[in-house]
Nucleic acid binder design. Structure first.
Lengths: 337, 337
DNA sequence: TTGAAAGCGCTACCAC
DNA sequence: GTGGTAGCGCTTTCAA
């Protein structure tokens, strides 16, 4: 090692000094660190991984168009997660796959290549090839979203408490006096959108309020679904969408059909975004705390990876990430008879 | 190696067989490949990198809110690039940084750690800390966008031919009879948005058409800029935006101010997206060929990495990615006096 | 507290 | 065609 020579010590001492191991004279350590810094030296990842195993985790984003609004925020999530990870020596890399199956394939392969120490999975589907693939691997995994089926004990789930938030949406609309509510869900297979629909349905159950969930996967189909929903004879007086883009579409279609929002139709966007504040009327929305969610992912990841090192401790489950209260803006009001 | 033992050969033969080197009996090769496959064995990335250097490149996405509409499509771009790369053994990893400086820091660090074989840089700024950092490194780099300053000969730029497309927008609006045209640019520092503004300005120059470019970085400031632009006494009869979200804002503000689109105001979205088709009126837009762009990035990356291996050949520059003709929809028309 | 040396898993060179 | 083996750059025993 250049650093070792320049500092006049052996490579072992350099290694100790840099990894903060004790057993090195304080002066020596400082000298080594200084020299390393001057030389701009950093340990080679490959050499380090060869002994210690990989120090990076991967998130394979699936871009098949079904991911809905949250797809766009994957990088925001990763940014937030990286804030946490930067303190340690774990990094989170993102890769893109065009289908769930391909994502599963890549993770299986990269695990075999010992390229990554663990994986983050987001946008869970009901039958998810990624879970099937990872289940048989001894890989540490962080799930964003609670899966329907039980998962290995070593895994961790970071869950967004949007069931609570969506129940609150249901109550809010009920309190306003709405009697016919519809939800425009994202892709059918998406677990998150299902859970949201279920939450609002249960909140409304027993109150005699009519509730329908229609699927509108992708902007075009969403637009078609909105169209038929609002043109129907017994159209709802309130529509809840899964994402912000679809909510924008609802506003547009309503305007075209001469349905006044919020008086004749209330609209709630299931995922808030800056754009929701700028429409006319502005959209009442469920907050989407990407930053908090990302931070939680960072912590969970650190947790599973550490637990994987020291097989003893189990990765404690994380608390659901609080979504916060509904952001009430201009698109909701009591229905006018 | 397990595979070597199971196949009854030495590790050397396994290595040769797997890397397609000649000098292995065909039967042996097949047997080795079969055994490796059965055992699900793949070479450890770390060990391989230790000898051959890293086989992955990284794109550090900057998420400081200034990136504009294209930020959301980073993963689409990477998906398209990966299609190309999957054939070789190069992979492209994405990381997220919260500022250009942080991105520069990460790349410098990862290069020192020999973690990545090269970098892809997107969303160039006028004074870009990333270029400053990478310039002094012998790292292969693919730039998305042509930089203003000269760059190392080994680098490659993948450029989108949107100057042509934006010049075409200028001509289109001139032909329609517009005399006052404004452009809502993205973040000031962004090179791409500048080039677009310049292209449209030159196209309009000499025709006596008034042209103004106002900056609206981030949705809120964009909304404010649109507001003052459309409220002004001598408001333009045509507005071109850098991205699709801003175009949506323009439509909304116009509606609120009772300005009829397209009759009293034409709107052109500088970056097409599915949402552009769904507004009322639908938005005339400049196509944004993410897929082609991503493929080009994949090829360019393969090029620079290969050139880096065999120092002899220079990485040939790639042709600009063709944007295609303006998508004329409902938001543009001749101005009514 | 420090140095010497083994070894992580692979590739590539040199014998055979 | 195939096997032995050095060595990539680190971490980590084990001795000194």
């Amino acid at each position: 090692m250049d650093v070792a020579r320049a500092a006049g010590v052996s490579t072992a001492v350099v290694s100790y000094a840099l990894n903060g191991r004790r057993g090195v004279a304080e002066v020596t350590r400082e000298r080594v660190l200084r020299v390393a810094d001057e030389l701009g030296w950093r340990p080679a990842t490959a050499a380090r991984s060869l002994r210690a195993g990989p120090g990076a985790a991967a998130l394979v984003a699936v871009h098949d168009g079904a991911a809905g609004a949250r797809a766009g925020s994957t990088l925001d999530l990763v940014t937030a997660a990286s804030e946490i990870l930067d303190d340690g020596d774990v990094t989170l890399a993102v890769h893109a796959a065009s289908s769930v199956e391909h994502a599963a394939h890549l993770m299986r392969r990269w695990w075999a290549e010992r390229r990554y120490a663990g994986f983050v999975v987001t946008g869970l589907r009901t039958e998810d090839a990624r879970l099937a693939a990872l289940r048989h691997l001894p890989a540490p995994v962080v799930l964003i979203d609670e899966p329907l089926v039980p998962t290995p004990a070593a895994w961790r789930s970071v869950v967004l408490d949007d069931a609570t938030a969506f129940a609150q949406v249901g109550e809010f609309l009920a309190d306003l006096g709405h009697r016919r509510v519809a939800m425009l869900t994202g892709a059918e297979g998406l677990l998150a959108t299902r859970r949201r629909a279920t939450a609002i349905r249960s909140a409304l159950a027993g109150s005699g309020i009519e509730f329908d969930a229609v699927s509108g996967d992708g902007v075009d189909r969403a637009a078609a679904a909105v169209g038929s929903l609002l043109s129907s004879g017994s159209r709802p007086t309130a529509v809840v969408t899964d994402d912000d883009v679809t909510a924008g579409i609802v506003l547009d279609v309503a305007r075209r059909l001469d349905i006044a929002v919020p008086w004749q139709l209330s609209v709630v966007a299931g995922t808030d975004s800056p754009a929701c504040r700028l429409t006319t009327p502005s959209l009442t929305a469920v907050p989407y705390p990407v930053h908090a969610l990302g931070n939680a992912v960072g912590h969970a990841l650190l947790g599973v990876l550490r637990a994987d090192d020291a097989k003893g401790e189990k990765a404690p489950q994380t608390k659901p990430v609080d979504v916060g209260g509904l952001l009430i803006r201009g698109s909701t009001a009591p229905p006018t008879p």
